[in-house]
């Protein structure tokens, strides 16, 4: 390198450093294994053993399972029924179930069809729809056609039956004050008996069936 008058830094000790070969102290290995053990213990207690569905503070899938709401029961069905009603029925019958005189959609509130002792007629109605007029609480309503909403629900027979049962439960509970759950099995049997029918029902057809 060129002689630089400012080069005053000493390059005296330019021997690179070396390392001694003294063996490691044993205590540090002992500490490491102790901490590893404690870490493994901690993981066992809180790690959920790599389960994707286990989040703190739950410690395992079984633990999460203990806090799942009971499936079934009327509250469950009502919740589903409310959603299905809002998606499929409220457009004509209104969210409050009062119906729509402009379209001829009859009310569901206090309707004798809703309050009938068994849900059979309701299930038939929902499944295949209605053609022509219908008398509700003394007044005649004619919207022309109620579509076969139940038949056109997505899913296989079992799922359709569950959904129709949920709608029936909700409608009877909300608008008819009948707090009895319509079971999917009921809906399935009834739908089985009318499965070959392609046309909508009429009021006369429904009146032939046991209320």
């Amino acid at each position: 390198m060129n002689a630089d008058p400012k080069q005053s830094c000493s390059v005296a000790s330019e021997a690179e450093p070396t390392a001694t070969m003294t063996p490691m102290p044993v205590w540090i290995l002992g500490l490491m294994f102790t901490l590893l053990f404690l870490g493994a213990w901690y993981f066992d207690l809180y790690g959920g053993w790599f389960e994707a569905k286990v989040y703190a503070p739950y410690s395992s899938v079984a633990d999460v399972q203990r806090f799942q709401p009971k499936k079934g029961g009327i509250a469950d069905t009502l919740a589903r029924g409310r959603k299905l009603y809002a998606d499929n029925c409220a457009v004509c019958h209104m969210e409050t179930g009062v119906g729509n005189p402009a379209n001829g959609c009859p009310p569901l509130v206090d309707s004798e069809w809703v309050k009938s002792p068994s849900p059979t007629r309701m299930i038939m109605l929902i499944s295949k729809g209605l053609a022509g007029p219908i008398t509700v609480n003394g007044k005649v309503w004619n919207s022309g056609v109620m579509l076969a909403v139940g038949d056109s629900l997505p899913g296989d027979e079992k799922e359709k039956a569950e959904k129709i049962a949920a709608i029936a439960t909700y409608v009877r509970f909300q608008f008819g004050k009948i707090e009895v759950e319509t079971k999917p099995a009921q809906a399935l049997t009834i739908r089985e008996s009318i499965k070959d029918r392609t046309a909508n029902f009429t009021e006369a057809d429904l009146l032939k069936v046991e209320p």
Partner: peptide
């Protein structure tokens, strides 16, 4: 919203 991995009783709708 109540989920399987994070259960909670939802408030009344």
């Amino acid at each position: 919203a109540p989920l399987f991995e994070s259960p909670v009783t939802p408030p009344p709708a």
